[in-house]
Design a protein around this nucleic acid. Structure first.
Lengths: 249, 249
DNA sequence: TCAAAAGCAAGAGCGGTGCTCTCGTTTTTG
DNA sequence: CAAAAACGAGAGCACCGCTCTTGCTTTTGA
């Protein structure tokens, strides 16, 4: 018995130290799971700490041991949502990067990642709204969210960088007014990228989510019917604006 | 006295019939004004019926004589917001349509309207979030909102239609997969428009708001710095996708 | 080894919310 | 002029986020 105790204490730091810490991790995960369930069911506005606690069989005040406020719980869900959509994008990117270097695959990867983002958004509309709709907690995003929030953008950058190296880009001319900003952007987000493509890339990033948001938020209701083919065509055209070569290129 | 009463009763239907009706209109407007003030200050999530009533010196239950629920108040604000941004777009369209028929004005009008939408959004971020962020009341937009919600899109359609008539469009080829949807779209939203431009136009509509949303919602923080010139360049490129001819065209 | 410290669940409670109902009062209507 | 409708005020219900206090358990450190 004492031997077992000693064995626990000599476990590496990375492992869970005691029963308390283990329980804390499990309870924290259970809270987030239940909160995510309520978020998916009713939306962020209806998410209630008391309801989460009730469903977990604990008292509402106990929940504040794990999240100092409702906004902190929402922030945790925001980070998870960014990670989820980011991972969906990265997975589809890996899947579309089977054969590297083949001409035209840049466009295929771009469309694949865009469709992955759209699919995730349609499957998790409330979580999507949490991160790409109105920012509900506070006015500015907490620092914890900036890393996960960049993952989709990183994938898009990687696609364009790879295509630039492997197939070349059909670069649009860079207007003089935009040159300083484009150079700053390129140096900031992708040091190896040509300034002429950095600005269109950021714009395409925003426009991609414009297409997704309009569909998820119902702006396309009674307007666009064949949404899959409509979306694919739109993001294909978007790929052209960042220099990815299509069939017509 | 009775004469005055009779005179009131013989007034035309369009006028206000009595003191009660007049008061109702005024109180309704006061409620909406105060609600809009709180919306602009704190956002839709913090809008409280009780606070509105308190500020207006009435009891919260009295407010329910004018709006049956909080969501109905929000819906009224949504309609007003759609009308406001729609009117901003229409006004800038009229201003940019001084000299009609001159070559290249289609592009100028497009950029002017896009900038007007962006300016309004940056000036009224919470109202913008109410209509182009997560749909907060219910899941589907009430029927009252569809008309006002279409105003900006109508302006964009008008610009392209006028340019099509006056200057011609540089139409991109229409892929076969998109043809049925494009024809349905064209017949639905703008009977005089070529199918090849209908789909890109709807996509550009969504992408325009993607650019605005990313800026308003803070997604461009620490990414895009020179936002005005960045936006103008992006919507100029967007104009090209709907066939409006630029200098390079 | 054992007492101090820290973490934890539970409960009561505060001020706030949306919303309903009732009750006089006032205005409109027939 | 009486019936009907609209209205403001108030009390009250259930819920919310959040705080504070009270005991209990685990962890810690001398």
């Amino acid at each position: 018995m004492f031997g077992a105790l000693r064995a626990w204490q000599t476990e590496p730091m990375s492992a869970i130290r005691g029963a308390r810490e283990r329980a804390r991790i499990e309870v924290t995960a259970a809270i987030k799971d239940e909160a995510r369930k309520q978020l998916a069911a009713e939306g962020a506005a209806k998410l209630s700490l008391r309801a989460v606690a009730r469903e977990l069989g604990m008292v509402s005040s106990a929940l504040y041991r794990y999240f100092p406020s409702r906004d902190d719980l929402l922030t945790a869900l925001i980070v998870d949502a960014y990670d989820a959509v980011g991972e969906a994008a990265e997975r589809s990117h890996r899947a579309a990067t089977g054969a590297a270097g083949a001409p035209g695959t840049g466009l295929a990867r771009w469309v694949a990642v865009a469709c992955a983002v759209r699919d995730w958004a349609l499957a998790h509309p409330h979580e999507y709204a949490l991160i790409y709709g109105s920012p509900v907690p506070g006015y500015t995003a907490p620092q914890d969210t900036v890393g996960p929030a960049a993952r989709v953008g990183m994938v898009l950058i990687a696609i364009v960088e790879d295509a630039h190296r492997d197939e070349g880009l059909a670069l649009p001319p860079l207007p003089d007014e935009l040159r300083p900003e484009a150079e700053r952007l390129a140096a900031d987000i992708a040091p190896g990228l040509a300034p002429a493509v950095a600005a269109p890339l950021v714009a395409a990033w925003a426009q991609l989510f414009g297409l997704v948001s309009f569909e998820v938020f119902g702006q396309f209701n009674r307007v666009v019917e064949a949404r899959e083919v409509f979306f694919r065509q739109a993001v294909t055209e978007l790929a052209r604006t960042v220099g990815l070569l299509g069939r017509r290129g």
